[in-house]
Each structure stands twice: as C-alpha cells, then as structure tokens.
C-alpha cells in the first residue's frame, strides 16, 4: 500500500509536468489551430538555456532559471509564432504540422551539437530528500515539483477566468470569429497564448530535468506524453489537459514499476489507442462540430 502511494505521488509529480506541456498544446490548438509537434523539444530545450547561463556564463542557478524562462518566451513563444506559425498557417494546417516536426528535429540536433550528446545533471529546485509521512516515505523533491506545477496551473486558471484579458483569450479560443466581431484584439490574444505556452514549457523543463537529466532526446517522450495527455483529456479543454497529464503520469509510473521499465514509453501510446477507440472526445472534451 505504501509503495503504491509512493508511486502515485511520483506519478502525479511527473503527470503535473506533462500537464503543463499539455495545457500549452491545447491552448495553441484552440486559439490558432497549431498542433505543435515540437512541443516535446520545447520542454527539452529550456533546461539547456539554463545550463548555458549557469555553466558557460557562470550565473547563479535561480538567475539561470529566470533567463531560461525569458529566453524561452522570446524564442519558443514570439519568434516561433512570427517565423514559423504565421507564414506556414497561411498554407494550411498540414504544412504547419510538418514544419513543427522539422523544427523539433532542428532543436534536438541543435542541442546535441551545440551543447552535448550526453545526459547533463541538472540541479534540483528542492532538496532531494526523503521524508516520512505516516510511515510512507515520500520524496521532498517530488512533492515540491507537484506543488509548483499545481500552483502554476492554478495561477493560469485564475488569469484565464478572472481577468478581462484572460476572458478575451478564452473568447478567442472558443469562437475567434465572434471574438473579432466584438472587437477583441484576436491577434494579440493569440500572441499571448504562444507566450504562455513557452513559459509553461520552460517551467516543465526546469521541473523535469532534475529527474530525467537534461538530454537532447528528452523531447521524444515528453512530446508524446503531452500529446497523449491532451488527447486523453479532450483536446479542446484546459481542464482536460490537466486531468490527462496527471493520468498519463500516474499510469506510466505504475507500469514502469509493476510491468517493466521497458514498457514505460509504450503506455501513453496504449492509452492513446484506447481513447481514440472508445472515447474520442477525451475525458472532459466536447465534440467539435464543424460546418463543412
């Protein structure tokens, strides 16, 4: 029992990180029909920004994290939208999807060539210690990760629901045509979405890299987990992405412990197939109606 609890908490911690990436995924899809297949690399890369700031430029850890978030917002948010998404989306959704796949490859190989092909140790934000709660050994660092991720998600939800800008973003996501008719600056709202996505990816990167180590190929698993989390939760729902992320995290942790670590990578895929077959709208999603 105690073991299961430990595994579930560890799963929730990684799941909350997947959720961060999955939320960005759904936000981009909702506001700009961008399916970002480089999302995994977007989570891989910010850790390297921090490593560069720390190891090459000699900055302190906290400052390097801040730099990583800001550089991510600039490059993975604004530059990504202006240079990749805006020109490609005019050609249709498929060319954009293919471009994001190419971008993912570029970022992966770039991290390998410019930094290192080896997995890099990354400092823990919280001390990597075990604490005992009612006889259950819990990792302080995992609890810290879980709390930070949940706090970020809660802050995002508050922003989206309690501020006028947040509601204009929601309006843009739910019905861009009507939002434009009401005078919502739709283009600016879409830019905010890209900035938020980049910031979430950077947060996810800083939280997951101590656990997985920073490695150029991390994006493969992270991107898949985020993609599956978004689908499982219901592609058009932020709440769904949270639920999906947590679910994927817990299930892949349990599978790694009770089935085999080798199968860890396949769990999200199995989950994906099951959901596509039996509940294509996802846990919390609504069916999308499209006028033809």
């Amino acid at each position: 029992m105690a073991e299961i609890l430990q595994l579930v908490i560890a799963g929730l911690a990684t799941g909350a990180i997947y959720a961060l990436a999955a939320i960005g995924f759904t936000l981009l899809w909702q506001t700009s029909q961008t399916i970002n297949f480089a999302q995994g690399e977007f989570v891989m890369l910010p850790a390297f920004f921090a490593l560069v700031a720390m190891n090459w430029l000699g900055g302190p850890f906290w400052l390097s994290c801040l730099v990583a978030i800001l550089v991510s917002i600039l490059l993975l948010g604004m530059v990504f939208k202006l240079i990749v998404v805006d020109p490609m989306l005019k050609q249709g959704v498929l060319p954009l999807v293919i471009s994001t796949i190419a971008l993912g490859l570029l970022l992966r190989e770039g991290a390998k060539d410019f930094y290192s092909a080896e997995a890099q140790p990354f400092p823990y934000i919280f001390p990597d210690r075990q604490i005992s709660v009612l006889g259950v050994q819990l990792s302080l660092s995992q609890i810290g990760v879980l709390l930070i991720a949940l706090a970020v998600i809660a802050a995002l939800q508050l922003f989206l629901s309690r501020t006028r800008t947040g509601r204009q973003m929601q309006a843009t996501a739910q019905n861009p045509t009507v939002a434009r008719i009401l005078g919502v600056p739709v283009e600016r709202m879409i830019m905010y979405t890209f900035i938020i996505n980049a910031a979430l990816a950077a947060m996810a990167s800083l939280l997951i890299s101590p656990i997985y180590l920073a490695k150029f190929s991390n994006g493969e698993h992270l991107g898949l987990a985020a993609f599956v989390a978004a689908i499982v939760g219901g592609f058009n729902q932020v709440r769904g992405a949270i639920a999906g992320g947590l679910l994927v995290g817990v299930i892949d942790n349990l599978a790694a412990a009770y089935v085999s670590t080798g199968y860890r990578q396949s769990v999200p895929l199995i989950l994906l197939v099951l959901f596509i077959l039996f509940r294509p709208q996802g846990l919390l999603g609504r069916r999308e109606e499209r006028a033809v």
Binding site: R164, R167, Q168, Q170, Q174, N175, L182, G183, V184
Partner: peptide
C-alpha cells in the same frame, strides 16, 4: 455566437471590449 464556457455575465461584458 456565444462563448459557451463563459458565464452569461462575462459573455455580456465581452460586448464592451471596444
């Protein structure tokens, strides 16, 4: 042409964005 997941009040408020 409503925003289904926002409240009625917030839908109304969006009429005044301009």
């Amino acid at each position: 042409n409503i925003f289904p997941e926002l409240s009625v009040r917030h839908n109304l408020e969006l009429g005044a964005v301009a």
